[in-house]
Amino acid sequence: MHDDEWDSLNSQIMTCTRCRLSESRTNAVPGEGPVPCPIMMIGEAPGEKEDQQGRPFVGRAGTVLNRFLEETGLPRDEVFITSIVKCRPPKNRDPKEDEIHSCSGHLDRQIAHIKPRVIVPMGRFAAGVIFSRFGIGGGKISEVHGKLFRGAFDGDEVMIFPVYHPAVVTHNPPLRSELAGDFARLKEMLSRINR
């Protein structure tokens, strides 16, 4: 993959006006991490802090994610982190179907460049979109989190491993142990892949 192609993609994301979210954003948030990268983590959409800084998962959910990555022995700078849509929906509402559709080409091109072995959708929303993208029958996040699914992208096998969204710790503290279990299983799975 050529650096200029990646730079061009990021530039297109930063200046994208394909949907109404571009009208209210401060910054688009393409994502960050190494390219290529064996693990790609995908959230729903940027929040207020992400919109301000142009970086993914820098708010409260990001603090939780960093902690779990650290406990898993995965430095944040060794995973690629992005979102389904690259601009913050007003008042952090769920992205709408046409907004997801408008942004889906960006995500597909990111996946093509990053060539992840494992995609980790974080939360029910990201899991639903990724399952749909890969033609996987899903279910509620409470049923699919911490389980391994297989898909294909450009002829290469990709493992899909949904987890609860890190923000769950803030909204529903008892689910912290579930999220910890998801990350423990992720660590175990990655250690098998890297052998």
Rank of each mutant, 00 (worst) to 15 (best):
H165I: 05
F80I: 01
S83Y: 13
C19F: 00
L65R: 04
G31E: 06
I193H: 05
A45G: 02
G146D: 05
V120Y: 03
I42R: 05
D51I: 05
P116R: 01
Y164H: 11
I39A: 13
C37D: 06
F161A: 09
E188W: 03
I141K: 05
V129F: 02
F80R: 06
T15M: 10
E78S: 13
E50T: 05
T82Q: 04
I111V: 15
L107I: 07
R192W: 07
V129E: 13
P166C: 03
D4I: 13
E97F: 09
M14T: 11
P46E: 06
G123W: 01
Q52M: 11
G47A: 13
T17N: 10
D156M: 08
V144T: 12
G54M: 02
I81K: 09
G59Q: 00
F134E: 12
A28I: 08
N172E: 12
E143D: 15
R185T: 09
M14G: 13
V58Q: 09
I136E: 07
G151F: 00
R195H: 14
K96W: 02
F80N: 06
C103A: 12
D108F: 08
E71L: 15
V120L: 04
S11V: 08
P173C: 03
I130T: 12
G151A: 08
V169K: 00
L175G: 04
L175P: 03
G139C: 04
H2P: 12
P30H: 10
F131R: 12
G181K: 08
S83T: 11
D77R: 08
T17E: 13
R18M: 09
G146R: 00
A28C: 08
I39E: 09
N66F: 05
L65S: 00
V168H: 02
E157A: 15
N27Q: 12
D51K: 07
H101D: 11
K86W: 02
G123L: 00
T170I: 14
P121I: 03
I136T: 06
N92W: 05
